[in-house]
Design a protein around this nucleic acid. Structure first.
Lengths: 223, 223
DNA sequence: AACAAACCGGACCGGTCGGTCAGGTTCAAC
DNA sequence: GTTGAACCTGACCGACCGGTCCGGTTTGTT
C-alpha cells in the first residue's frame, strides 16, 4: 500500500507515494525532491521521533519547507507514509517467517525483529505505542501486522510450544511493551530489551500455567 | 522528602513543599493558593500528562500564571513535586506489603498498585517511563521504589515462588512496561493491563525456565 | 489607622511550531 | 526557441509555549 514502487494507477489522493497527478508525468525535479524528502524524513523521524519539526526535515533534505507541504498536505501525512513503510517491512518479515521449520523460533524471531525496529526508530515506536495517530494507512498497517502475528502464533499454538490463550494482537502489543519496559534504562544498556523479551517469552511459553483471567483484546483502537 | 507535612526546617530551596521562607511565617493567601495550585496541578497533569500547560493549571486552580512561577521556579519543579508525592505513596504501599504473609501475593499486589497508578495518572507514567526528567527528587523517589521492590522480590525469591534472576529494578521496569503494553488498546478495554500483568507474572514465576541470557540492569538512568 | 513587605495577576517577551502564499524558476511539450 | 504549467522557496502568519515583570492588592504588624 505504501510501497514507493507500487502501481501508479492507485488513487493519488490516498496514496502520496505514487505519482501525484494522473494526467501528466511528474517532473524530474519533483520526483528527485520527493526521494530526498522521504529519505530525510525517515532519518530525522527515526532519530528525533514524531516531534521533529518540518523545518528540520526540510533542511536535512536540502529543500524548502514549502516543498514538503507540496508533497504531503500535513506533517501527519508525511509521518504516516514513513511509518507505513516500516510497518510494511515488518509485515514482510513476518510473512517470510510464516513457513519456517520451527514455529516457536519463528515467533520469537518476529518479536525480536519488532523490538529491534522500535529501538532503531523513535517515531515508529511512538506511533505504534500510542493511540494518537489515527491515520488510515497506519491503522491498516497495524491490522496487517496483527494478522501475520496471528498466523505465526497459530502455528506455535498448534505445535503446543506456546500457551493456547495468546493471540496475534497480544504479540503485537507485547512487542511494543517489551521495548517500553527497557526504554528507561536503555542509555545504560542498549540491549536490555533482550532480557525482557526473554522473560515475556517465558510467560508466553508457560503452557502449564492457569489461563489468563482477563480476555484478549479484540480490536486495538477507538472506543 | 516531598511530603507536604514534612519538617519545616528542611532547606526551602530544595524542598518547595515546605514554607518558602525561613524568617517570617508564610501569608495565609500564599498558603491557600499553594494548596489550590498543588491540587489543580495533580489533576491536570494526571489527565493531560506532562505537556499540560502552566496556563491550564493556573486556570484550573483559579490563580494567575505568575503565581504558579512564584511557588515553583519552573514547570519542571512543579511536575517533580507532584510526581514525587505519587512516588512516595507507591513506596509506602510497598513498605506496607513488606511483611505480608504471602511474599508472592505481596509482590503481585505491589505491581498491581504500580500499574493502577500509571493508568490513573498520565504524567506519572510519562515521567517514570522515560529518562527525560532528571529532577533529583524524582530520581531519588525512583531509587527508593527500586529498593522497596528489591525487598519484596527478595522475600519471594527466598520462598522459591519467583525465579532467582529477577531483581527489584526488573520489577519497577516491568510495572511500567505492563502499562505501556496495554496502553494502545486501553480505550477499548481499560482493564486490559490485567491480562499482561498476569502474563508477565507467569514469566516471573517461571522458576524452572533457563536463566535469562541478558543480565539485569544495575542502574536506571544516565550513561 | 497606617504602613511596608509579601503577594497577586495578566500583559508582555522571545521562541517554536505547523501551515500559507506570492513571486521567481525550471521543466517538458510543441 | 517559445511558452505556460508545474514547481520551488523562504518570508510570513497566527497560535501556543515557558517564563518575566511591574502596578495594584492583600496581609500581618505596630
Amino acid at each position: 500500500m505504501t510501497n514507493p514502487t507500487a502501481n501508479p494507477t492507485a488513487n493519488p489522493t490516498t496514496n502520496p507515494m505514487t505519482a501525484p497527478r494522473t494526467s501528466r508525468q511528474a517532473r524530474a525535479d519533483a520526483l528527485r525532491n520527493r526521494r530526498l524528502l522521504l529519505g530525510a524524513a525517515a532519518d530525522v523521524f527515526a532519530e528525533y521521533g514524531t516531534e521533529a519539526s518540518v523545518t528540520q526535515i526540510a533542511q536535512r533534505a536540502g529543500i524548502g519547507k514549502g516543498t514538503v507541504f507540496r508533497h504531503f498536505p500535513t506533517k501527519e501525512d508525511l509521518l504516516a507514509a514513513i511509518v507505513g513503510e516500516l510497518l510494511d517491512a515488518l509485515v514482510d518479515t513476518g510473512v517470510a517467517l510464516s513457513d519456517a521449520d520451527d514455529p516457536e523460533a519463528a515467533l520469537l524471531a518476529f518479536m525480536t525483529a519488532g523490538v529491534e525496529l522500535q529501538v532503531k526508530d523513535r517515531a515508529f515506536c511512538e506511533v505504534v505505542g500510542r493511540p494518537s495517530l489515527r491515520h488510515p494507512d497506519v491503522q491498516a498497517g497495524i491490522e496487517r501486522l496483527c494478522e501475520v502475528a496471528e498466523t505465526l502464533t497459530d502455528r506455535a499454538r498448534r505445535q503446543g510450544t506456546v500457551r493456547q490463550d495468546i493471540t496475534g494482537r497480544d504479540i503485537v502489543l507485547l512487542v511494543g511493551g517489551v521495548h517500553q519496559t527497557a526504554a528507561p534504562a536503555m542509555d545504560a544498556d542498549p540491549e536490555l530489551w533482550r532480557r525482557y523479551l526473554g522473560l515475556v517469552f517465558d510467560g508466553i511459553r508457560a503452557v502449564t500455567a492457569a489461563p489468563l483471567a482477563h480476555p484478549a483484546p479484540d480490536h486495538m483502537r477507538l472506543g
